[in-house]
Amino acid sequence: MNTEELSPRYADIDLWQPADILDAMIEGQLASVAAVRAARAQIEHAALAIEGRLRKQGRLVYVGAGTSGRLAVQDGAELMPTFSWPQERLLLLLAGGEAAMTQAIEGAEDDTERAAATIAEHDIGPDDVLIGVAASGSTPFTLTCLREAKRRGALTVGIANNPGAPLLTDAEYPIFLATGPEPIAGSTRMNAGTAQRITLNLLSTLIMIRLGRIYRGMMVEVQACNAKLAKRRERMVGHLTGQSGEPVREALDLARGSVKLAVLLLQGYDLAEAEAVLDRVDGRLRAALDHLAKMRAPSLDGTPSLDDTGENTKRGS
């Protein structure tokens, strides 16, 4: 496996000057970015396939062990506060459980029985997406989870750093990251880990953009779980509506903190109308605003336009 090989380039790294060590490791990080760039098409294809499955209300499942598993869990955990991804539609499966986030659990990554049982316990099936991450591409826990999920009809994505690895050959959507040998042999938290982290970030963010959870470059689904994010939410609504101060705060209160609903309320619609149109367009704010603009537009003969039910629109422009 390339990720386990000794590299002649770094054979005497322990004798180098600190600045030279840092330069070599930075070089490796830049090579990781290049490896991700080379896999762009694979990332795109995987994202579009995942989007289609998640539009059917499926779950997003991240699986891994060790460093790869921690990176996968981190990416998944950030989807809830950043994009308000429903917790009930997210599974984070780390070999060894939560304790493995901060310590090595002996034998956890080799426990194939536990892996198969975990997939069965969560009843993973055709509506779901499983993303398995392993630098080697052959970690037994991760590989078993992916194979079992695939057998049960789930869409599977494999991310690995060794060509031809089982995780890549068995996944429907393989993403190969050619990071090669590490500066410290086998320490895949370095080059391989960086490439995995970037790939996961790109993959999940592209999916969330495609699902309408970003509008005009802003996180319009953000959860205001602290004062900083509450202020950011107010700024977003203000920026999108041209209003500020108390009207923005009142709209957010009425919208129960939803940026999307608050924006529509400040356009003059009541809460029921705003909720209905967002539901009609799968929560996409751009589509909701376009829909409402068409509803408001007068017809060619000067009469108010009709909405989709054939009734006159309630509000003019």
Results as ranks from 00 to 15, higher is better:
234 E>I: 12
15 L>A: 09
206 L>N: 04
276 A>G: 09
237 V>M: 04
183 P>T: 06
169 T>W: 07
259 V>T: 15
234 E>L: 08
120 A>N: 04
97 G>E: 10
223 Q>T: 14
173 Y>I: 06
122 H>P: 08
315 R>F: 05
182 E>W: 00
257 G>F: 09
125 G>T: 04
111 D>E: 10
225 C>E: 15
34 A>S: 14
126 P>Y: 02
91 L>F: 11
253 D>E: 15
181 P>G: 12
167 L>P: 02
194 T>C: 15
51 E>I: 08
86 P>K: 02
32 S>H: 09
221 E>A: 11
152 R>W: 10
248 V>K: 00
120 A>S: 12
119 I>P: 00
284 R>F: 02
63 V>T: 06
66 G>W: 03
74 Q>C: 12
315 R>K: 10
294 K>S: 07
74 Q>I: 08
307 D>P: 07
17 Q>E: 15
256 R>K: 15
126 P>A: 14
101 M>H: 06
316 G>D: 05
224 A>W: 09
116 A>P: 05
269 Y>C: 03
89 R>L: 13
48 L>A: 10
139 T>P: 04
282 D>M: 10
227 A>S: 13
195 A>D: 04
160 A>Y: 08
94 L>T: 06
181 P>H: 03
304 P>L: 01
157 V>Y: 04
145 C>E: 04
261 L>H: 11
44 E>N: 13
82 T>G: 05
49 A>I: 05
241 T>S: 09
304 P>D: 02
275 E>F: 10
22 L>F: 08
219 M>P: 02
296 R>N: 03
302 G>Y: 00
146 L>I: 14
70 R>I: 14
173 Y>T: 06
58 G>C: 07
13 I>K: 01
249 R>D: 09
70 R>N: 11
262 A>G: 03
39 A>I: 13
61 V>H: 01
74 Q>Y: 05
191 N>Y: 03
88 E>S: 14
234 E>A: 15
190 M>I: 09
219 M>A: 09
23 D>Q: 14
158 G>I: 07
163 P>F: 03
287 A>F: 10
276 A>M: 10
184 I>F: 09
238 G>A: 11
51 E>S: 09
237 V>T: 10
76 G>F: 04
175 I>Y: 01
187 S>A: 13
288 A>R: 00
161 N>K: 05
214 I>R: 00
276 A>E: 14
140 P>D: 02
103 Q>G: 07
88 E>C: 10
208 M>R: 08
102 T>V: 13
158 G>H: 03
55 R>D: 05
295 M>P: 00
61 V>A: 02
241 T>D: 11
313 T>I: 07
226 N>I: 08
248 V>T: 03
259 V>Q: 11
234 E>C: 14
176 F>Q: 04
206 L>K: 05
148 E>A: 14
265 L>C: 06
252 L>M: 07
268 G>H: 11
240 L>M: 10
124 I>D: 00
171 A>S: 11
56 K>P: 01
17 Q>M: 09
